[in-house]
Structures are given as structure tokens and as C-alpha cells.
Computed example of a mutant assay.
Amino acid sequence: MSIINDINTMLTDILGPFGGVILVGFIGLIMILVTLPVLLKKQVDPLDKLKALNRAHTAKASGNGERLRAPTSKDKLEKYANFLEPQDAVAYSAARLTLLQAGYKSKNAVRTFHFSQFALGIFGLIFGGLYALLKTQTGEVSQQSMMMTLLIPGFIGYMLPKYWVTRRVAARKEAIEYGFPDSLDMMLVCVEAGQSMDQSILRVARELKSGFPDLASEFELVSQEMKAGKGKEAVLRDMAERCGVQDISSFTTVLIQSQQFGTSIADALRVYAAEMRDKRVMRAEEAANKLPTKMTLATMMLTVPPLLLILIGPSIYGITQTMGGGN
């Protein structure tokens, strides 16, 4: 018992009144970092082992002297796929769609996103622990303040990737929405010049690459999928889902209906392009009409107090002087 008291006294002298709590927290964090990869390691399927052996024998028998590639970081993350990826198909599809709308089209995007959340959360906890240790050296700290210092950086680190993806989705949708009317006008010119729809999409993608890279990448992907033999209707619906913009969803519906009913694609593009131009003008007018309302509060805060000071200030000063003279 005396040994425990001596250790507690030593920790209190070195780390402050919460020395024991800090030591236990660091020991727990180290145990999590050491044991978690072991517990979450994905078990190797015997069938995968057999396939790897067959590939090794095939590569050795081919005699071309090529070495097997070392596993990359993505392969290492694949060991923890059960932990880093949602096991529910609906949740995985929703996360995958969100990352696609943010512009991250890699097949390992969901895994990388959750790994970044986990890693930044751990780094935040470590930073919070070091800062809490520094605070205990400078003065006394309450237990509530200590817990907030430990947990807030970890929470911020965990939520930072989600905040980044959300902002990226909003910015990408806005960029696509802004450049879409110009792409329709260019597509209409190409179609009326005699090009097919596939050639028009590819030409528009090349022309828009410098000004609107997000929209150009979507058109390029559509062109590549069409060249690969995928159905045009499925390709257009996938594009609308990846973009997440209502204008593109309506555009794909117009093209699909035009193809199904055999109507002229040029006429459909001409009508829809005119509607998109009018819609962009209405968006600009809406933003301009919102501006006076947004400026009202700032105008009142900057003009009303000086005006009241000028109008009422002399009267208040005269009243105070009169009352002071009467006393």
C-alpha cells in the first residue's frame, strides 16, 4: 500500500493533481494502438491463399523475370476492410455516393475516408493529452477542463474529413450547376453541325476542361463508358447520380425520352438550353435581391448607433449637466 502511495505522490509531483488520470489515459491509448490492428486484422481466406500460390507459380513459369509487386498502402488498408467499411450495403452505397459527388472516384475511397477519420481522431487525442499535460505543469486544472481538453481535439480530428467532404460536395455541385448552361449551348452547336451525341459530349468535355474541370471529367467519363459498350440510358442515369444536381437529372431525362420516342435531339437541346439560360439569369436575380436583406443588419449596426449618438447625445449631456448642477 505504501508503494502505491509513493507512486501516486510521485505522479502528482511530476504531472500535477491529475497525474494518475493522465498516466492511465496514455496507457489505454497505447494499448488501443497496439492491440486494435491485431483484433481488426482480416482473416486470410484459404481460397485467396490458393489463388496467390497459383499466381506465383504462373509468374515463375512464364519466365519473364518480373517480380511480384509489393503490397501498396491500399492493400494494407484492405486487411482492415471489415472495420473501415460499413458492412451494411445501404450505408456503404450512401457513403460511396457521397464521395462520388465530392469527386473521389477511387474504389477504395470509402475505406480511405474512414481511415482518415480514425487516424485524425487518434492524433487529436494525442495532441489533447500533450496539451493537458502542459496545462497541469503551468497550474491547477479542474477535472472537467481536463476531459474537455482531451476529448475536443479528438472529436475535431474525427469530424474534419466529414466536414471537408461536405464542403467539397457543395462546391462541386455549384461549379457543375454554373457551367452546365454553357455546356448545353456548346453541345447544341456540335449536334447541329452534324456530330453524333457521343462525339458532341467528348468535344464539349475537351472544351470545358480548363474552365469547368469537374463537369468536363463527368462528360469524359460518360464518353468512355459509351465507348466501352455500356447502355446510353444507364450511363446518363449514372452521371446524374454522381453529380447530384437537379438540372443534370432533368437533362438526362430529356435525352432518354428523346431517344425512346425518336424525336430530334437538337430540338430538345435547344429548348432545354434556353430554359437553363433563363434559370441562370433567375438565379443571378435571386442573389441580387437577397443582397439588400443581408445588408440590412450590417447597415443598422453601422449607421443607427452613430445617428443616435449625434441626435440624442447633446440632450443627454445637457440633462446630466443640469442634474449635476442642481445637486
Results as ranks from 00 to 15, higher is better:
residue 207 E to G: 12
residue 23 L to V: 04
residue 318 G to H: 15
residue 211 G to P: 09
residue 267 D to F: 09
residue 225 E to D: 15
residue 228 A to S: 09
residue 279 K to V: 06
residue 300 M to Q: 01
residue 224 Q to L: 10
residue 129 G to T: 13
residue 193 A to R: 11
residue 128 G to Y: 08
residue 235 V to A: 02
residue 96 R to E: 14
residue 146 M to A: 11
residue 62 S to N: 00
residue 41 K to Q: 05
residue 120 L to Y: 05
residue 316 I to Y: 03
residue 145 S to Q: 12
residue 195 Q to F: 15
residue 50 L to Y: 02
residue 162 K to R: 12
residue 81 A to S: 12
residue 169 V to E: 03
residue 7 I to P: 08
residue 109 A to Q: 01
residue 189 V to D: 14
residue 175 A to R: 14
residue 165 V to F: 09
residue 292 P to G: 08
residue 206 R to F: 15
residue 171 A to M: 13
residue 63 G to T: 00
residue 259 Q to I: 03
residue 158 Y to W: 12
residue 241 E to T: 03
residue 114 H to T: 12
residue 114 H to S: 10
residue 92 Y to M: 01
residue 169 V to N: 07
residue 285 E to L: 02
residue 104 Y to V: 08
residue 4 I to C: 00
residue 154 G to V: 07
residue 7 I to A: 07
residue 149 T to F: 08
residue 259 Q to M: 04
residue 140 E to H: 14
residue 124 G to E: 05
residue 172 R to L: 13
residue 279 K to W: 06
residue 220 E to C: 04
residue 157 G to L: 01
residue 315 S to M: 05
residue 21 V to S: 07
residue 264 S to V: 05
residue 252 T to Y: 12
residue 161 P to L: 01
residue 242 R to I: 12
residue 9 T to A: 14
residue 118 F to K: 13
residue 261 F to I: 13
residue 245 V to L: 07
residue 46 P to Y: 03
residue 284 A to N: 06
residue 196 S to R: 15
residue 259 Q to V: 06
